[in-house]
Amino acid sequence: MACEAGIRKLKKPRKKVRLIGNEAQIGRKSSGDVLMLLIVGIMAAFSFFPLLMAINMAIKPINELFYYPPRLFTAHPTLDNFKMLFSLMQNTRVSFLRYAFNTVFISLAVTLGHVFIASMAAYPLAKLKLPGIKTINTMIVFSLMFVSAVTDVANYLTISWLGWLDTYFASIIPPMGATLGLFIMRNYMTTIPDSLLEAARMDGCSNYRIYWQIVMPLSKPVWLTVAILVFQQVWGVDNSGYVYRESLKTLPYAMRQITTGAIVRMGASQAVGVAMMIIPALFFIVNQTKIINTMATSGMRE
């Protein structure tokens, strides 16, 4: 019975043909669409609210920032805060673009490096049964607990011992060794069918080619997600602990220098919050489109 009903629904032509999310669409009614939209909308409202607040604060004139009780929406929207931020940016000792370049460069380098190194390590950890691998897997789970806060002091000593203080290496190399991305990718890769890898091996694929042409394309959604995560983390890092030359410091450092100061800077500090959001937001959007494209072209079918 249920089967017949399903076929009847299938016969009814749908107005739009969609490429993705195919399985749930087969039997879904348009009323379901509306209900879903409603639920997502309510949840999204909660997530959207902080951004609304941040933008609102950024376009408030400075006297309104101190209203008590504070108002949700501003009465006199203005771009003064951004103008002030720009004029402050003109006056930095090192050109503002230099800070921006450092941040983008470091973020991209760490993201690329981490995804590459960690995915390379994740493949054997997920798919090959060898002595020592179980120990390493346990170690990874355990190591997730030790964040930078605990190892900061010791890390400084290591970096100085390597002679990397005051270079780009100090900001780029250490975050690459993080285990979180590796852990996520390893667990994802365990779901890749063994038969695919066996078939490739039978056809004479080297391990390197299996990694590059089978494992990596199949786990594209996860390494793109890891890339978002890593980029997001590195973007906000203030590297002034390891780097003393002004020309090597990053945007978060510069921004904090600009905005912490007198109460006059309060407006600018709100504008900074919004300005710093732009790049991670763009990175996320581009990244997610890539994931969707993968979905449309290649499913994990055997």
């Binding site: 994802y188 779901t191 199949l218 959604p221 996860v222 997600t225 994931i291 993968t294 994990m300 079918r301």
Partner: peptide
């Protein structure tokens, strides 16, 4: 990302 990879 996990949901995307479930074979359809």
């Amino acid at each position: 990302s996990a949901l995307y990879s479930v074979p359809s």
